[in-house]
Computed example of a mutant assay.
Amino acid sequence: MSGEQRPGARVPGAGPGHPPAPGGEPELGVVMGERRRLVNLAYRLLGSLTEAEDVVQETYARWYATSPAQRAAVASPGAWLTTVASRVCLDQLRSARARREAYVGEWIPEPVPERAEWIHGWSGGGGTDPADRATLDESISMAFLVVLEQMTPAQRVAFVLHDVFRFSFAEVAGIVGRTPAACRQLASAARRRVRESREGATPDAQHPDVVRDFKAAWEAKDLDALIGLLDPDATATGDGGGVVRAALVPVRGAEEVARRAVGLLDVLPGLTLVERTVNGRPGLVVRRHSATVAVVAIAIVDGRIKHMWTVRNPEKLRPWTEDDGLG
């Protein structure tokens, strides 16, 4: 595992390299203290909390597969763990395309509820620059994750590591296996995609009002009000994973999206809508008989709802049904 040790790597928010314990090996608490940041990183790279947790477990397994002497020689356990986790994610992304092609219907990134300590928390990190904080916060939005899904694995890893987690291109190159110049080009291409997706974005302060009005109109089955709150070219994408019923292709157009929404209340009586934060943005949770049956992430452009992503696949709703959620 010596090839995965990069003593000079900078780990955002982790501070300088951790000194070894008296016995020569870093203390267990120091190593395990990196878990939250590793999950943060892996979730943004993979768009799946379940897969992110698997990556972190694999990373720790590799750490403890080395000898005590090898671990004691690592100047920065955080940098070592981050490098390994990033490489595992890159391998996952390269194999994910085949799995996504076999997926029933549309694949939407796994939604996560508001957990300030998980989503926004850096390991050791009280002094994050405000500009970095804005980028970090945006990087969990569903719109952002959907754009990342359109990138090549190398683009995605280079962009997230550099633009979100502030790794240098030299550090990114050591993970992706490209030259620093090539990684710079990868991140630049990814950055253009993200910039194009932001055009016309509505200020965050207005989002709660739009979502609240949409919820009220949906509950009232007010078709005209719903259409008025939707962009004329609005899209609604569902993800049932072949486990529960969901549209196999995105629904397009304000009127059709509104009709489908009203029709859902007719087909499934007893549904209740709850305003919740979904991936850092105002969204809706759909419940039936106290059970979460869907999570709706919403993107708003020019004051109207442009995109809705409804996740119904029960396997992706675990954080919304378990008390410990993101742990």
Rank of each mutant, 00 (worst) to 15 (best):
A98P: 01
P111N: 07
R318N: 02
E322G: 01
E196I: 07
I305E: 04
L81N: 11
G283I: 06
S95W: 00
R6E: 09
I227Q: 13
R184E: 15
W107V: 08
V293A: 06
R35Q: 14
W320C: 04
A173Q: 02
A69V: 12
M32C: 05
E196M: 14
V278S: 02
V286M: 08
P77V: 09
A9C: 03
T82H: 01
V249E: 11
T59V: 11
R318M: 05
V251P: 01
D233R: 14
D209E: 15
Q5T: 09
L317D: 07
D233Y: 15
A246D: 08
G17T: 03
D224H: 00
V164S: 09
A297E: 03
R184L: 11
R184T: 04
R156G: 06
D129H: 15
R94H: 10
P109L: 12
D137C: 05
Y60Q: 01
S86I: 08
A75M: 01
A294Q: 05
P16V: 12
A61E: 13
A102N: 05
L136I: 01
D231V: 02
H207F: 15
C89N: 04
A170Q: 10
V257G: 06
H162T: 12
P180K: 06
A181L: 10
V285R: 07
M142V: 03
S188E: 14
L145N: 02
T50Q: 13
G124Q: 08
V74E: 12
R37Q: 12
A258K: 09
V274Y: 07
E106G: 02
S139T: 00
S290F: 09
S141E: 11
W218N: 06
A254L: 05
D132T: 04
H18P: 01
L271T: 08
I305Y: 13
A297Y: 09
M308R: 12
M151G: 07
L230W: 15
S86F: 04
R62E: 15
A9W: 04
S139R: 02
V262I: 15
E114C: 03
P109S: 07
P282E: 04
G174D: 12
N279L: 06
L148M: 14
A247I: 00
V293K: 01
Y64E: 10
V311S: 09
V146S: 07
R115N: 11
A299K: 09
P77Q: 12
R260C: 01
G263P: 03
G29W: 01
C89Q: 01
V251Q: 02
R44N: 04
Y43Q: 08
S123W: 02
K215H: 11
P16I: 13
R133K: 13
L248E: 11
V172F: 01
T321A: 06
V112R: 05
R318Y: 10
V249L: 12
R178D: 09
L90R: 02
L268S: 03
A254K: 06
A299W: 14
F169S: 05
D132K: 01
D224N: 10
L38W: 03
E25N: 04
L326E: 13
A258L: 09
